[in-house]
Design a protein around this nucleic acid. Structure first.
Lengths: 103, 103
DNA sequence: TTCACGTTTCAATAATCGTTGAATCATTGA
DNA sequence: TCAATGATTCAACGATTATTGAAACGTGAA
């Protein structure tokens, strides 16, 4: 992954509401959740949520599909896995840093 | 890890200069690098770098020590490992998502 | 078509961010 | 002590961000 893309994905997650959205959707799984339900559960105004969903989606972390009048959002697990792999390689000098080998 | 802490660490890394600093220091290893050398290598103004180092440090991702007139910065690998673990648990529903099991 | 519902867009606002250059602090050597 | 070096702090600035409420846009039902 290019560091530019990593920055945009990190940035998308580096905000309380957006991280909460992403965590909620990961819990929910691939079936996803409608924007309105996310807003209700997290107590975020619909327009504010839309703003955050747009940011997460354009960073590639969420996928959306329309179902009737609902727009369903679901995590892109591969994208997240890619980010984690990037951090692992660039944080811990690759495989040299297992869970107990740091410092 | 609390999500609040995760947000602050994600935010610290979600900026091109800061991610570059962190990557450089990870490459360098635990011995660390002086602020001036980081600034020179990354072509960042000293005052700007100081701002970024402060952010990374206060997020817990860097440790610093004074050596003579130099201030040496080094990664806190455990903190970074903690962030990666948090993302793994909250992104991929725990161990259910190996490298090839996403989507 | 008309209406209601779910969602997004828009303009406006206050707050925060990243950069710059000058000033200041800390440490060492003359 | 004084000067030199490395690093940080500070004020100022332009740019970006998150939030709000109103308006507009789809979609499906009456």
């Amino acid at each position: 992954m290019k560091s530019e893309l990593a920055v945009s994905r990190l940035y998308a997650l580096a905000q309380a509401s957006r991280l909460a959205v992403f965590r909620l959707l990961v819990q929910k799984g691939p079936e996803g959740m409608a924007a309105g339900e996310i807003a209700e559960r997290l107590k975020v105004a619909p327009s504010a949520l839309s703003f955050h969903l747009k940011e997460l989606t354009s960073a590639g972390l969420l996928k959306s599909r329309q179902e009737g009048r609902f727009v369903i959002y679901a995590p892109d697990f591969k994208a997240m896995r890619g980010l984690i792999d990037y951090l692992t390689e660039n944080c811990c000098a690759g495989s040299a840093c297992g869970p107990d080998e740091c410092n």
